Simulated scan of single mutants.
Amino acid sequence: MTHHPDHDVELYRDDGIYRVFVDLPRFDPEEIEVAWVHHRLTVSARRSGGPGSSRVFDHEVNVPRAVDADGITATYREGVLDVELPVDRNDSPPGRRIEIET
Rank of each mutant, 00 (worst) to 15 (best):
T2C: 12
H3W: 03
H3Q: 05
H4Q: 12
P5M: 04
H7N: 15
D8I: 08
D8G: 11
D8W: 10
E10F: 06
L11D: 00
R13V: 11
D15T: 12
D15E: 14
I17L: 04
Y18E: 02
R19Y: 08
R19S: 07
V22T: 15
P25I: 03
R26L: 13
F27R: 06
D28W: 12
E31L: 09
E31I: 09
I32L: 09
E33L: 09
V34G: 10
V37Q: 13
V37T: 13
H39R: 15
L41I: 10
L41V: 08
V43S: 03
S44P: 01
S44Q: 09
A45R: 05
R46E: 08
R46S: 08
R46C: 06
R47N: 02
S48C: 06
S48T: 05
G49P: 02
G50I: 02
G52L: 07
S53Y: 05
S54G: 05
V56R: 08
V56K: 06
F57V: 04
D58P: 01
D58Q: 09
V61D: 02
V61R: 02
N62H: 06
P64K: 03
P64D: 04
V67F: 04
D68P: 00
D68F: 00
D68C: 02
A69V: 15
A69Y: 08
D70A: 15
G71C: 06
G71T: 09
I72G: 04
A74Q: 15
T75R: 15
E78M: 03
E78T: 01
E78Q: 14
V80T: 11
D82V: 00
E84G: 13
L85G: 02
P86R: 08
D88Y: 01
S92A: 15
P94V: 12
P94D: 12
P94Q: 12
R97F: 13
R97S: 11
E99W: 05
T102Q: 10
T102P: 07
T102L: 10
